[in-house]
Design a protein around this nucleic acid. Structure first.
Lengths: 241, 241
DNA sequence: CTTGACCCTCCCCTTGGAGGAGTCTGTACA
DNA sequence: TGTACAGACTCCTCCAAGGGGAGGGTCAAG
């Protein structure tokens, strides 16, 4: 039912994590509803890579269950966040590869890294790496940073804001969103583009039908493309009248 | 830099997964940029729980990198999906616990499970569980089903489909979505409502501005309200001409 | 009465490292 | 210049969380 193997049940029996509620004469392990429920809890924790011993401890303690679950939820959400970061890194990796660039080694480990340590290590190791391999990471990082033009950076920041608004349940027509869009358009218009509110709405709508853009946006946050389109349309409508 | 331990590097050296580009006279392992990049790939795969042997194989084969990365992305998205399902299960678990209900054992393992096997197992095991523990899973499911009226059930099923389509990246204008909406409207119209495509689009749009409905939909799946609205509008537009 | 699908126990194997013992290097400070 | 201290080296054992397989029992169906 739960998909765990017999071996796993043996193991859990052996280590006392999940005991059968009865054993038949033939030695078969029998499990009831209570055991099923306990198994569910075990699987939740296991999904979080808790060691079985820890799981046993947590289940024996058994403070109110609700708090157990709430805690698990938090951990799962953190994990999901982490996954999303990694997915983003990967997508960047793919994008920069398409443009033939080499990815800068700092971003390369985003999501895996332990950020502060990186910063320290980077400085200390840079000289050594340069001497040893004739490659200067700091230099190349700076070049990358300059290459990645301001506009791309602004766009990324804008999208991050929008995605966060979606996640936190802010309405597409909320004043904050309208302000974000306005600022974004202002920025664009100051940098050589001419984008009206209607253009922007049309563009956002176009994204919904375009594989590349749709995947990019939805990859960042499920529903982002649709939210953006609704927001852009609402902004254009407000502009209109 | 990457956060892996020395021990891990030893291990990778031993199994030939990541060789240092040079070894100093004193026996120190030295790694260069190429190795760093390779390590990044290894860590990506490891994040997906690929066994190291498999990782070695994939890296040796080295078809175009792009397809490797694209494949990784897909796996990550699947994984994210799985996590989301588990989080949902957990939230349901918490909700039903608050109401003091016992969760039905089918839903209890959603996200962990192997769906088809469940269906088979359920039927076969039901009688046994009933005999053994006086608890009839099918019966309780049926009671639930009857309590929940048919229309609510259809609506829930419809929303689940839509949410899944959103998660799996199906376009709002996809034929499948259009079909789903049509069926939903047909059902509604057969049950005493009169809902045109335009009505439906207007209703979906109304949800975007209504706190109650917005929270309900977004609670089920981030972006669902916006996706639904886009889909309904697209359906209405198609109907029109 | 057999067959197939399960289950049992017992024992060894595997993966991906972590830990420790004993030793060597490399740099920093006095 | 010596000395300390961090960190690397090799070699070895240990660990978790099961998986595989031998050798054999059980149970419902045909």
């Amino acid at each position: 039912m739960s998909g765990v193997t017999v071996k796993t049940l043996h193991h859990y029996h052996k280590i006392g994590l999940l005991l059968p509620c009865a054993v038949s004469e033939a030695g078969y392990r029998l499990y009831g509803m209570k055991e099923l429920e306990r198994l569910q809890h075990i699987l939740f924790y296991r999904e979080l890579d808790f060691p079985l011993k820890e799981i046993a401890r947590l289940l024996e303690e058994e403070p109110e269950r609700h708090s157990i679950l709430a805690q698990q939820e938090e951990l799962l959400l953190v994990r999901k966040q982490r996954l999303e970061t990694i997915i983003q890194t990967l997508q960047q990796s793919m994008a920069s590869m398409e443009k033939g660039e080499i990815m800068n080694s700092k971003d390369m480990f985003k999501g895996f890294e332990n950020a502060q340590e990186w910063e320290k290590a980077l400085e200390e190791q840079n000289r050594h790496l340069k001497d040893a391999y004739g490659y200067d990471m700091l230099d190349s990082a700076e070049i990358d940073a300059q290459n990645m033009n301001e506009q791309a950076q602004e766009a990324a920041a804008f999208m991050n804001h929008i995605a966060e608004a979606l996640r936190t349940g802010i309405k597409h027509s909320d004043a904050e969103i309208q302000r974000l869009i306005q600022e974004h358009l202002d920025f664009m218009n100051k940098h050589g583009h001419t984008v009206t509110a209607t253009d922007f709405a049309a563009q956002a709508r176009f994204f919904l039908g375009d594989d590349f853009h749709l995947r990019m946006l939805e990859g960042q946050q499920t529903g982002l493309a649709y939210y953006l389109s609704a927001a852009a349309e609402s902004y254009a409508a407000a502009e209109q009248q």
